[in-house]
Amino acid sequence: MKSPALRLFSLAYLVFLYAPIVLLPVFAFNDGTIIAFPLKGFTLQWFDDLFTNVNLGHALKNSLIIAVSTAILATTLGIFAARASTRFDFPGKAGIMGLIMLPLVLPEIIVAVSLLIVLLGIGIPLSIFTVILGHVLAATPYAIAVLNAAFSSLDRSLEEAAYDLGEGKISTFRLITLPLVLPGIVSSCLMAFTISLDEFIIAFFLAGEQTTLPTYIFSQLRFPKQIPMIMALGTCLVAASIVLLTIAEYFRRRGIARTGGKDTGGFL
């Protein structure tokens, strides 16, 4: 079917999607403090500011601690849920999965505010730990979506063959199941890591005195002088996410190929 209008529209849509991102490096290397055309000239000053900024370094360190913890915890919780929902049938399964997947559609501010009330109510001081609690909640549904695909394309007869050959439950999981779903696990970790690194609202409410990368960026957006440095930071973040996502996508496809499934495309 030939549809030039549809193709043109879709390409225009891609331009719309990428316009804000393409402009980032344009201004990050521009030698001018005002973010506007015409461009002034080439500079690396904003990147230099970036690497010598102590507050930013601190926020980045916090964000990395939070993101790594979130990746591990959300993927672990995701493995339990994905395994349960693809392997077992039990009463109330739809309701339970509905609750677990709820943060996918619930506005993040509701998650943030309700957790804030509980944490303050029982007297847990706000810190990066409380941000991790919130981020795990928000990232787990995405982890489950990725892991569900990995677990559901798993052929159950492979596990049964291992049982028949005398392997126990745990060794079967280690020798058969785990290697087959490992690409899904890697991809889930990377996704949870990326979500946590970028999450703003929950961190804004639950970090207390601490800053994370997004809350630091948000605080700097008020100062026009800081904007070129934020553009440089954005350029670095975009580059990092593209690398991470390419790796995640590679593992996701390899996982599907390994278990002999059909690629249904996409993360959601």
């Binding site: 849920a81 077992f88 609750l99 787990t140």
Partner: peptide, 24 residues
């Protein structure tokens, strides 16, 4: 099967109950 299913989902479910349902 039901017991194994509940056992398997319990860590994630308990987390969602404590961190999502209770706060709501």
């Amino acid at each position: 099967e039901a017991f194994n299913g509940y056992l398997m989902i319990s860590p994630t479910l308990i987390y969602a109950l404590l961190m999502l349902a209770a706060p709501l």
